[in-house]
Amino acid sequence: MIRTTALTKRYGKVTAVEDLDLHVAEGDRFGFLGPNGSGKTTTVRMLLGLVLPTSGRVGLFGSSICRDSLAQIGSLVEGPAFIGHLSGRANLRLSDAAGPRGSRSSRRRRIEDALEQVGLSGVDRRPVKAYSLGMRQRLGLASALLRRPRLLVLDEPTNGLDPQGIREVRDLLLKLNAEGTTLFLSSHLLSEVEALCSRIAVLDRGRMVLQDDLSAFRRPTGLIEVRTPDLYQAEQLLGKRVEGTAPDGLLLVRHDDPAQLNVQLVRNDIRVVTLRPRLRSLEAAVLAATGNGSDRLAGAKDPR
């Protein structure tokens, strides 16, 4: 769906994005992570033809950026934007009439469908400037969904939504993905990407530092967390396998097989409250791969 080769953007002497090879396959839920100022937005803008690359190229649906390929993309870039004195429906009508492939006969139905999907079907005629942040975000999503796109490129889609709204949007995106829409999600919120995405790329200072399946990031660490009231007995039994303890009854045990460990503990009359393998967190993987965000301007020397 998206394939960039050696994509580079320089603004004068500043290199915003360097040598980026991005690959998003059909049906992916692709998470694009990176600290602030790492070049995420510039990349998204290059994918959508807003910013022209200095070198390298962008492929969309197997061809280059063109009218036809852009028409199959729904997007949300750096927050939604509307004509403030018109209503949400009027905005969607104008937006739909502006581009190609917006057939007039199906317009009303598509607008109502999109509003329904984002939970705004009951919205009245008040102008968009009177909308709350969350309503604008929903309307922005509706605008992206208007053409029933094959690919959704979303920048911080849950910005400004309450927990309930975040949940709704997440469910909506998962449902669309299940129906065949490819998702490209750019965010600096690890939790959001972790909850939604199947593949992840991490950008740092304009360079890609990681690109892999989420499961590869979250591989087991070989440690098992055991919570037990019989802390002392457990330590006695397991001996050197114990890597650490916490005062609230948590034991970190190096062991390859959680099931086997459980049997061993229970046979020795040690009560187990919970037992689970500790996975490497996405956060740890990302932090290990990236430096500080560019909005942190401490005087320290560049660690690289």
Binding site: R45, G49, L50, V77, E78, F82, S143
Partner: peptide
Amino acid sequence: GTLRYLLIRP
């Protein structure tokens, strides 16, 4: 901010 959405529409 509506310019970018117009150009993306496209």
